[in-house]
Design a protein around this nucleic acid. Structure first.
Lengths: 122, 122
DNA sequence: TGCCGATATATGGGTATCGGTATATACTGA
DNA sequence: TCAGTATATACCGATACCCATATATCGGCA
Protein backbone atom coordinates (compact mmCIF):
# COMPACT_ATOMS: atom_id res chain seq x y z
CA UNK A 1 0.00 0.00 0.00
CA UNK A 2 2.87 2.34 0.70
CA UNK A 3 3.95 2.49 -2.95
CA UNK A 4 0.94 3.06 -5.20
CA UNK A 5 3.18 3.86 -8.15
CA UNK A 6 6.01 1.54 -9.12
CA UNK A 7 3.80 -1.42 -8.39
CA UNK A 8 5.07 -4.52 -10.15
CA UNK A 9 3.68 -7.29 -8.02
CA UNK A 10 2.20 -9.67 -10.63
CA UNK A 11 5.57 -9.99 -12.31
CA UNK A 12 7.30 -10.27 -8.96
CA UNK A 13 5.02 -13.15 -8.08
CA UNK A 14 5.81 -14.78 -11.40
CA UNK A 15 9.54 -14.45 -10.95
CA UNK A 16 9.35 -15.73 -7.42
CA UNK A 17 7.63 -18.86 -8.65
CA UNK A 18 10.30 -19.23 -11.33
CA UNK A 19 13.22 -18.51 -9.03
CA UNK A 20 13.69 -22.17 -8.18
CA UNK A 21 15.68 -24.53 -10.35
CA UNK A 22 13.25 -27.42 -9.91
CA UNK A 23 10.21 -25.32 -10.78
CA UNK A 24 11.95 -23.91 -13.82
CA UNK A 25 12.72 -27.41 -15.01
CA UNK A 26 9.07 -28.36 -14.53
CA UNK A 27 7.99 -25.37 -16.59
CA UNK A 28 10.53 -26.39 -19.21
CA UNK A 29 8.93 -29.81 -19.39
CA UNK A 30 5.38 -28.48 -19.47
CA UNK A 31 6.30 -26.03 -22.20
CA UNK A 32 6.36 -29.05 -24.48
CA UNK A 33 2.98 -30.38 -23.45
CA UNK A 34 0.71 -31.51 -20.68
CA UNK A 35 2.18 -34.06 -18.28
CA UNK A 36 0.98 -35.92 -15.21
CA UNK A 37 2.84 -35.79 -11.93
CA UNK A 38 4.48 -39.16 -12.27
CA UNK A 39 5.92 -38.17 -15.64
CA UNK A 40 7.52 -35.11 -14.16
CA UNK A 41 8.71 -37.24 -11.30
CA UNK A 42 10.33 -39.69 -13.69
CA UNK A 43 11.83 -36.99 -15.88
CA UNK A 44 13.44 -35.07 -13.07
CA UNK A 45 14.22 -38.12 -10.92
CA UNK A 46 12.86 -36.39 -7.87
CA UNK A 47 10.84 -37.82 -4.96
CA UNK A 48 7.10 -37.58 -5.51
CA UNK A 49 6.28 -35.22 -2.61
CA UNK A 50 8.85 -32.78 -3.89
CA UNK A 51 7.36 -32.74 -7.38
CA UNK A 52 3.85 -32.42 -6.01
CA UNK A 53 4.87 -29.56 -3.77
CA UNK A 54 6.60 -27.62 -6.52
CA UNK A 55 3.63 -28.15 -8.81
CA UNK A 56 1.40 -26.84 -6.04
CA UNK A 57 3.53 -23.73 -5.74
CA UNK A 58 3.35 -23.19 -9.49
CA UNK A 59 -0.41 -23.68 -9.37
CA UNK A 60 -0.99 -21.23 -6.54
CA UNK A 61 1.17 -18.74 -8.41
CA UNK A 62 -1.21 -19.15 -11.35
CA UNK A 63 1.50 -20.51 -13.60
CA UNK A 64 0.01 -23.92 -14.25
CA UNK A 65 -3.41 -25.48 -14.10
CA UNK A 66 -4.33 -29.08 -13.49
CA UNK A 67 -6.88 -31.54 -14.69
CA UNK A 68 -7.77 -34.82 -13.08
CA UNK A 69 -8.23 -37.91 -15.21
CA UNK A 70 -8.92 -40.95 -13.08
CA UNK A 71 -6.13 -41.36 -10.60
CA UNK A 72 -3.84 -39.11 -12.58
CA UNK A 73 -3.53 -35.36 -12.42
CA UNK A 74 -2.26 -33.64 -15.54
CA UNK A 75 -0.57 -30.27 -15.37
CA UNK A 76 -0.15 -27.75 -18.14
CA UNK A 77 1.01 -24.18 -18.46
CA UNK A 78 -1.75 -21.68 -17.87
CA UNK A 79 -2.25 -18.62 -20.08
CA UNK A 80 -1.43 -15.49 -18.10
CA UNK A 81 -4.04 -12.80 -17.64
CA UNK A 82 -1.38 -10.16 -17.04
CA UNK A 83 0.23 -9.21 -20.33
CA UNK A 84 3.64 -8.67 -18.78
CA UNK A 85 3.55 -12.12 -17.25
CA UNK A 86 2.38 -13.59 -20.52
CA UNK A 87 5.28 -12.01 -22.38
CA UNK A 88 7.79 -13.34 -19.85
CA UNK A 89 6.39 -16.83 -20.09
CA UNK A 90 6.46 -16.73 -23.86
CA UNK A 91 10.08 -15.64 -23.78
CA UNK A 92 10.89 -18.45 -21.43
CA UNK A 93 9.17 -21.08 -23.52
CA UNK A 94 10.92 -19.73 -26.58
CA UNK A 95 14.23 -20.34 -24.84
CA UNK A 96 13.29 -23.87 -23.85
CA UNK A 97 12.29 -24.65 -27.42
CA UNK A 98 15.94 -24.44 -28.45
CA UNK A 99 16.93 -27.22 -26.05
CA UNK A 100 17.16 -30.36 -28.15
CA UNK A 101 17.82 -32.71 -25.23
CA UNK A 102 14.78 -31.32 -23.46
CA UNK A 103 12.66 -31.86 -26.53
CA UNK A 104 13.71 -35.49 -26.81
CA UNK A 105 13.06 -36.10 -23.14
CA UNK A 106 9.55 -34.69 -23.29
CA UNK A 107 8.85 -36.59 -26.50
CA UNK A 108 9.79 -39.80 -24.74
CA UNK A 109 7.49 -38.92 -21.85
CA UNK A 110 4.58 -38.04 -24.08
CA UNK A 111 4.86 -41.40 -25.83
CA UNK A 112 4.29 -43.14 -22.51
CA UNK A 113 1.49 -40.79 -21.57
CA UNK A 114 -1.80 -42.07 -20.24
CA UNK A 115 -3.28 -44.27 -17.54
CA UNK A 116 -1.25 -47.30 -16.62
CA UNK A 117 1.89 -45.91 -18.16
CA UNK A 118 3.16 -43.91 -15.24
CA UNK A 119 5.84 -46.41 -14.38
CA UNK A 120 7.80 -45.08 -17.35
CA UNK A 121 11.42 -44.53 -16.55
CA UNK A 122 11.61 -46.55 -13.39
CA UNK B 1 25.85 -31.76 -11.42
CA UNK B 2 23.21 -34.41 -10.95
CA UNK B 3 21.11 -33.12 -13.84
CA UNK B 4 23.29 -32.54 -16.89
CA UNK B 5 20.28 -32.18 -19.14
CA UNK B 6 17.47 -29.81 -18.27
CA UNK B 7 19.97 -27.33 -16.98
CA UNK B 8 18.48 -23.87 -16.80
CA UNK B 9 20.58 -22.25 -14.12
CA UNK B 10 21.44 -18.88 -15.70
CA UNK B 11 17.75 -18.07 -16.07
CA UNK B 12 17.05 -19.39 -12.59
CA UNK B 13 19.67 -17.04 -11.22
CA UNK B 14 18.11 -14.19 -13.13
CA UNK B 15 14.62 -14.93 -11.85
CA UNK B 16 15.86 -15.30 -8.32
CA UNK B 17 17.38 -11.85 -8.50
CA UNK B 18 14.09 -10.53 -9.87
CA UNK B 19 11.91 -12.37 -7.39
CA UNK B 20 11.91 -9.50 -4.94
CA UNK B 21 9.55 -6.55 -5.21
CA UNK B 22 12.20 -4.01 -4.25
CA UNK B 23 14.72 -5.33 -6.75
CA UNK B 24 12.12 -5.36 -9.49
CA UNK B 25 11.28 -1.76 -8.76
CA UNK B 26 14.97 -0.88 -8.94
CA UNK B 27 15.26 -2.57 -12.31
CA UNK B 28 12.15 -0.69 -13.40
CA UNK B 29 13.85 2.56 -12.48
CA UNK B 30 17.14 1.66 -14.13
CA UNK B 31 15.36 0.59 -17.28
CA UNK B 32 14.85 4.29 -17.90
CA UNK B 33 18.45 5.28 -17.34
CA UNK B 34 21.49 5.23 -15.12
CA UNK B 35 20.90 6.35 -11.54
CA UNK B 36 23.00 6.77 -8.44
CA UNK B 37 22.15 5.08 -5.16
CA UNK B 38 20.68 8.15 -3.53
CA UNK B 39 18.30 8.63 -6.44
CA UNK B 40 16.99 5.12 -6.08
CA UNK B 41 16.77 5.68 -2.37
CA UNK B 42 14.71 8.83 -2.87
CA UNK B 43 12.49 7.27 -5.51
CA UNK B 44 11.63 4.20 -3.50
CA UNK B 45 11.67 5.92 -0.10
CA UNK B 46 13.69 3.10 1.37
CA UNK B 47 16.51 3.23 3.91
CA UNK B 48 19.94 3.50 2.29
CA UNK B 49 21.39 0.17 3.51
CA UNK B 50 18.41 -1.60 2.05
CA UNK B 51 18.89 0.00 -1.36
CA UNK B 52 22.61 -0.66 -1.30
CA UNK B 53 22.10 -4.29 -0.39
CA UNK B 54 19.53 -4.92 -3.09
CA UNK B 55 21.76 -3.21 -5.63
CA UNK B 56 24.59 -5.45 -4.46
CA UNK B 57 22.43 -8.52 -5.01
CA UNK B 58 21.53 -7.33 -8.49
CA UNK B 59 25.20 -6.67 -9.21
CA UNK B 60 26.39 -10.07 -8.04
CA UNK B 61 23.64 -11.62 -10.15
CA UNK B 62 25.13 -9.80 -13.12
CA UNK B 63 22.00 -7.78 -13.70
CA UNK B 64 23.47 -4.34 -13.17
CA UNK B 65 26.90 -2.77 -13.29
CA UNK B 66 28.17 0.26 -11.43
CA UNK B 67 30.45 3.18 -12.08
CA UNK B 68 31.93 5.47 -9.50
CA UNK B 69 31.98 9.21 -10.06
CA UNK B 70 33.43 11.00 -7.09
CA UNK B 71 31.44 10.05 -4.05
CA UNK B 72 28.56 8.79 -6.12
CA UNK B 73 28.08 5.34 -7.53
CA UNK B 74 25.90 5.09 -10.60
CA UNK B 75 24.10 1.88 -11.49
CA UNK B 76 22.78 0.81 -14.85
CA UNK B 77 21.34 -2.34 -16.36
CA UNK B 78 24.01 -4.64 -17.71
CA UNK B 79 23.69 -6.39 -21.08
CA UNK B 80 23.26 -10.11 -20.54
CA UNK B 81 25.73 -12.54 -22.03
CA UNK B 82 23.19 -15.35 -21.96
CA UNK B 83 20.69 -14.88 -24.77
CA UNK B 84 17.79 -16.29 -22.75
CA UNK B 85 18.49 -13.85 -19.94
CA UNK B 86 18.81 -11.02 -22.41
CA UNK B 87 15.44 -11.84 -23.90
CA UNK B 88 13.77 -11.93 -20.48
CA UNK B 89 15.27 -8.61 -19.51
CA UNK B 90 14.17 -7.04 -22.76
CA UNK B 91 10.65 -8.28 -22.18
CA UNK B 92 10.70 -6.86 -18.71
CA UNK B 93 11.96 -3.46 -19.81
CA UNK B 94 9.35 -3.45 -22.53
CA UNK B 95 6.69 -3.87 -19.86
CA UNK B 96 8.09 -1.08 -17.73
CA UNK B 97 8.12 1.25 -20.70
CA UNK B 98 4.32 1.26 -20.67
CA UNK B 99 4.18 2.59 -17.13
CA UNK B 100 3.56 6.33 -17.45
CA UNK B 101 3.90 7.09 -13.75
CA UNK B 102 7.21 5.29 -13.70
CA UNK B 103 8.39 7.28 -16.67
CA UNK B 104 7.55 10.58 -14.99
CA UNK B 105 9.24 9.55 -11.78
CA UNK B 106 12.48 8.60 -13.53
CA UNK B 107 12.37 11.75 -15.60
CA UNK B 108 12.16 13.80 -12.44
CA UNK B 109 15.11 11.91 -10.99
CA UNK B 110 17.21 12.31 -14.09
CA UNK B 111 16.67 16.06 -14.04
CA UNK B 112 18.24 16.23 -10.60
CA UNK B 113 21.01 13.87 -11.61
CA UNK B 114 24.61 14.66 -10.86
CA UNK B 115 26.94 15.53 -7.97
CA UNK B 116 25.46 17.72 -5.30
CA UNK B 117 21.91 16.98 -6.33
CA UNK B 118 21.34 13.85 -4.39
CA UNK B 119 19.12 15.55 -1.87
CA UNK B 120 16.41 15.51 -4.50
CA UNK B 121 13.10 14.40 -3.13
CA UNK B 122 13.82 14.86 0.54
C1' DT C 1 45.43 15.01 8.84
C1' DG C 2 40.45 15.39 10.04
C1' DC C 3 35.64 16.03 8.89
C1' DC C 4 31.61 14.99 6.10
C1' DG C 5 28.56 13.03 2.81
C1' DA C 6 27.81 8.77 0.04
C1' DT C 7 27.94 4.06 0.01
C1' DA C 8 28.86 -0.57 1.75
C1' DT C 9 28.92 -4.17 5.16
C1' DA C 10 28.15 -6.51 9.72
C1' DT C 11 24.89 -8.17 13.13
C1' DG C 12 20.70 -9.92 14.97
C1' DG C 13 15.76 -11.22 14.91
C1' DG C 14 11.84 -12.71 12.54
C1' DT C 15 10.15 -15.21 8.68
C1' DA C 16 10.05 -17.87 4.52
C1' DT C 17 11.80 -21.61 1.84
C1' DC C 18 13.59 -26.43 0.58
C1' DG C 19 14.05 -31.18 0.96
C1' DG C 20 13.17 -35.57 3.33
C1' DT C 21 10.11 -38.58 5.73
C1' DA C 22 5.82 -39.87 7.20
C1' DT C 23 1.09 -39.66 6.62
C1' DA C 24 -3.30 -38.49 4.50
C1' DT C 25 -6.47 -38.25 0.66
C1' DA C 26 -8.46 -39.61 -3.92
C1' DC C 27 -9.48 -42.83 -7.22
C1' DT C 28 -9.76 -47.64 -9.27
C1' DG C 29 -10.83 -52.28 -9.38
C1' DA C 30 -11.87 -56.57 -7.14
C1' DT D 1 -15.34 -52.98 1.80
C1' DC D 2 -10.40 -53.70 1.05
C1' DA D 3 -5.97 -53.28 -1.40
C1' DG D 4 -3.09 -50.76 -4.40
C1' DT D 5 -1.63 -46.78 -7.02
C1' DA D 6 -1.37 -41.72 -7.66
C1' DT D 7 -1.21 -37.48 -5.56
C1' DA D 8 -1.29 -34.15 -1.80
C1' DT D 9 -0.21 -32.47 2.71
C1' DA D 10 2.05 -32.22 7.57
C1' DC D 11 5.87 -31.99 10.10
C1' DC D 12 10.70 -31.22 10.82
C1' DG D 13 15.44 -29.41 10.62
C1' DA D 14 18.56 -26.73 7.90
C1' DT D 15 19.26 -22.98 5.31
C1' DA D 16 18.43 -18.62 3.15
C1' DC D 17 16.18 -14.49 3.01
C1' DC D 18 14.45 -9.50 4.48
C1' DC D 19 14.69 -5.74 7.29
C1' DA D 20 16.37 -2.41 10.80
C1' DT D 21 20.15 -0.76 13.25
C1' DA D 22 24.81 0.11 13.89
C1' DT D 23 29.24 0.52 12.05
C1' DA D 24 32.81 0.66 8.52
C1' DT D 25 34.82 2.29 4.15
C1' DC D 26 35.53 5.47 0.47
C1' DG D 27 36.19 9.96 -1.90
C1' DG D 28 36.44 14.90 -1.70
C1' DC D 29 37.80 18.91 0.59
C1' DA D 30 39.51 22.05 4.11
Amino acid sequence: MSHPKLEVSPVARLFKALSDQTRLRIVALLSHGELCVCHVQAALKLPQPNVSRQLGILRSAGLVEDRREGSWVYYRLKPQADSDCERQIRGLVQGFAKDAALGREVERLLKSKGPGKCEAGR
